[in-house]
């Protein structure tokens, strides 16, 4: 996964290896620690998190470098998330 943030003339590029994100341990961490604090993920079980990660992993191949999320703020800030 690659996250790119452009704001105030600065660019932050954060490459994260997919193997660090899409693995059973990450799924456990997400459902135990992140999900209770994120409204969109509340109530997500370990099995559901694993299924979602599997879906994201398959989606990565379908997007072929296209951003999953592309945000362009009215003030010129930009955020891209590429799987």
């Amino acid at each position: 996964m690659r996250i790119r943030v452009k704001a105030d003339g600065h660019t932050i590029f954060l490459p994260i290896p997919s193997c660090l994100l899409f693995n059973p341990l990450s799924a456990l961490l997400v459902c135990k620690f992140a999900a209770p604090h994120v409204a969109a993920l509340s109530g997500l079980t370990y099995a559901q998190t694993r299924a979602l990660m599997h879906g994201l992993s398959r989606a990565r191949r379908k997007l072929r470098g296209e951003p999953l999320v592309d945000v362009k703020g009215g003030n010129g800030e930009q955020v891209y998330v590429i799987l």
Binding site: R58, A59, K62, V71, K72
Partner: peptide
């Protein structure tokens, strides 16, 4: 407010969700 958000979701991911 001028913000533009684009979310590109492969159908395969939508089905999983």
């Amino acid at each position: 407010s001028g913000d533009v958000v684009r979310v590109n979701l492969p159908i395969i991911l939508v089905k999983t969700a």
